[in-house]
Measured scan of single mutants.
Amino acid sequence: MDALKSAGRALIRSPSLAKQSWGGGGRHRKLPENWTDTRETLLEGMLFSLKYLGMTLVEQPKGEELSAAAIKRIVATAKASGKKLQKVTLKVSPRGIILTDNLTNQLIENVSIYRISYCTADKMHDKVFAYIAQSQHNQSLECHAFLCTKRKMAQAVTLTVAQAFKVAFEFWQVSKEEKEKRDKASQEGGDVLGARQDCTPPLKSLVATGNLLDLEETAKAPLSTVSANTTNMDEVPRPQALSGSSVVWELDDGLDEAFSRLAQSRTNPQVLDTGLTAQDMHYAQCLSPVDWDKPDSSGTEQDDLFSF
């Protein structure tokens, strides 16, 4: 819950932080000083300027060897085509990944977070970031790969997607708890209302004896509580940590079903599988986004697919 609360507080303090972009060759504004600060901008989305290598189908939802083989196929196909790589912007948030063309600003792909089953910074092609997700059109699994400016960037994108998945799962947990509370309150309110109706004398007997209905007592009954809980029953509950912020979080049926399955089948359902080692994760978390744009010590960066 700490990640969720800190993310909400950060967004309320400075929503404009989320509009910064990394990996864009110096076009961005001043960047936060450390990885923790940038992680807090996830709610509205972190932007990464990358190059799209392509996509291939895979048979399993996750796995280092599986993704490595898929990336190898994608890279080989991209090299064989001889075409310049498409420059894209990857927007990562707890909602998922939005992929747009840098030149036309046209939407290429919009992947809900619950469809993503794996992401990684490839070991062999260490400047490549990739994720595996279920197609929104059918049940097939797709591996999408992107060329980053350097290994640090690939690791940073991988960690960002993993963190977005974690925050999304926490949102789901909060929403589920809130819905259970509202359902319980609604049920209790309905029981109270039913009890009051059972003990209320029939209207005919009131008229016969000349008694008047006590409207004041009726007004004191917990009807307002019942209506408050039943009027918006169809509205999706939102985490309290975000009250007053500009973010509107809505959970669709697909996300609810997917996270429910994860909660039942996995020990740590909030953790998205990645190909990063503990050492890689520690190294990337210690980086400032400013470091992502620094040239690798191995030599001059080449803006070309064939540089790796």
Rank of each mutant, 00 (worst) to 15 (best):
A195T: 15
A78R: 02
M55C: 10
R73I: 09
Q302W: 07
T120M: 12
K62E: 06
M281C: 07
N232C: 06
Q86A: 01
M55N: 13
T120F: 13
I132A: 05
A76D: 15
A221N: 03
A195I: 05
D280N: 14
T36H: 09
W292C: 12
E170A: 15
A76R: 10
Y283F: 11
K83F: 03
T230D: 09
C148T: 08
G24L: 06
E235I: 04
A3S: 10
A70P: 04
L147W: 11
G190S: 07
H28Y: 15
A18D: 05
I12V: 09
K83T: 09
K181F: 11
V157S: 12
L203G: 02
T225P: 13
S243C: 08
R261K: 00
W22L: 02
F48L: 06
E257I: 02
K179F: 05
D2P: 06
R115P: 15
I74N: 09
L287D: 02
G82H: 10
F129K: 12
K176L: 03
M233H: 07
S205P: 12
A121L: 12
V167P: 01
R73Q: 13
Q155W: 04
Y131R: 14
L223P: 07
T209Q: 09
K5A: 08
D273E: 13
D2F: 07
G25N: 10
V207C: 09
A130M: 00
K127A: 09
G54E: 02
K204Q: 05
D303M: 09
N211V: 12
S135E: 10
L11M: 11
L255V: 08
K294C: 01
E170S: 07
S224E: 02
D191H: 09
L159P: 02
K30C: 13
E142V: 15
G54C: 13
S93Y: 15
I97L: 10
E177I: 01
L276Y: 02
L90F: 13
E64D: 15
L141C: 10
S16T: 01
L53N: 07
E142C: 06
V226F: 08
A164R: 12
P61M: 03
M124P: 00
D256K: 04
T225D: 05
A145F: 11
V128W: 13
A7D: 13
W172P: 01
G275F: 08
W172M: 01
A76C: 09
D253S: 13
H137N: 15
A263C: 11
L107M: 08
K152T: 04
K51M: 04
E109S: 02
N102M: 09
A208G: 07
V290K: 01
N34M: 10
F171V: 03
T89F: 10
K5R: 01
S14P: 14
K181P: 15
N268G: 02
T149A: 03
R238I: 08
S224Q: 03
Q197M: 08
N105H: 05
A258P: 04
A258L: 01
Q187A: 04
A195M: 04
M233V: 11
G54S: 13
Q86N: 12
E170V: 04
Q285D: 00
L50C: 11
